[in-house]
Nucleic acid binder design. Structure first.
Lengths: 131, 131
DNA sequence: TACTTTTCCATGCAGATGCATCTAATGCAA
DNA sequence: TTGCATTAGATGCATCTGCATGGAAAAGTA
């Protein structure tokens, strides 16, 4: 892969990431009171099929440091969207589980999330109401 | 484009961005005392062919808000890598130009930047010394 | 058992970011 | 010219992030 292709590819990633996360952050926040990472965490827990997750596991899934994830989960817990509890097996550990309210909020925000992706990834076909 | 493809594509962008920017940030910082965005700004000014740039112009190029870019340029100026000056034409405006030291630092950091991209975008062909 | 090392999560701290706002300079219109 | 809306960039503020560290529990070792 040539150097220019590499740089080009990286800049595409940068541009896509900047545009998408900016819009996602705004829409999710305004319409559902969720940050992008917060939505991402809820989604992983809904999709995972399991009930309990470890903090580090969540952190890896959403590409956050362990400390950032710890605080993010604290925010979600404060909002009533997840709960934390002690691991019985490993008492250093903490498990996180999504609450019914968390599931509801995720379900509510999901269409917004998908609509933003659809719009940003294919600007031509605007199915949502145009300005 | 199906909803799953959209989500999949977005997650790929998230993953690529997280991995790459994490490594870039660390390598550029440790080896050249530059943040990723700082390198990006220098590079745009070197590549641009012009001498003077407006703050907003730089902000757009590197996907930063105007305020973040203003501070970033202030840091670069403090480090002697760019200079700021008053626009003659529009005296609200400010122009930014890269200094010789800035060019030197960019030239020095560029191979690191490219090496990281090469490694992250094609993990198979490790041309740099493996661990 | 007693001691050391490692692992898990929380937290203090410093740095970067975006939003809202402020000041100064333009531009436009009456 | 005067007055109002707009634009450029700087800055206060709140928030989020990662690094380094802390305490507690587990795992490994003698």
């Amino acid at each position: 892969m040539s150097e220019e292709s590499l740089v080009g590819a990286w800049r595409e990633v940068l541009a896509k990431h900047a545009t998408t996360s900016c819009v996602l952050e705004r829409e999710l926040s305004e319409r559902h009171g969720l940050g992008m990472s917060e939505f991402e965490v809820l989604e992983r827990m809904v999709e995972g099929g399991r009930e309990k997750y470890r903090v580090q596991e969540v952190a890896d899934a959403v590409h956050l440091s362990q400390s950032a994830c710890s605080r993010l989960i604290a925010r979600l817990e404060k909002a009533g969207l997840v709960r934390r509890g002690m691991c019985e097996a490993d008492r250093r550990g903490v498990f996180v589980l999504i609450t019914d309210e968390g599931r509801a909020r995720h379900a509510e925000a999901r269409p917004t999330h998908r609509a933003v992706l659809a719009e940003v990834f294919s600007p031509a076909e605007r199915l949502t109401s145009p300005a």
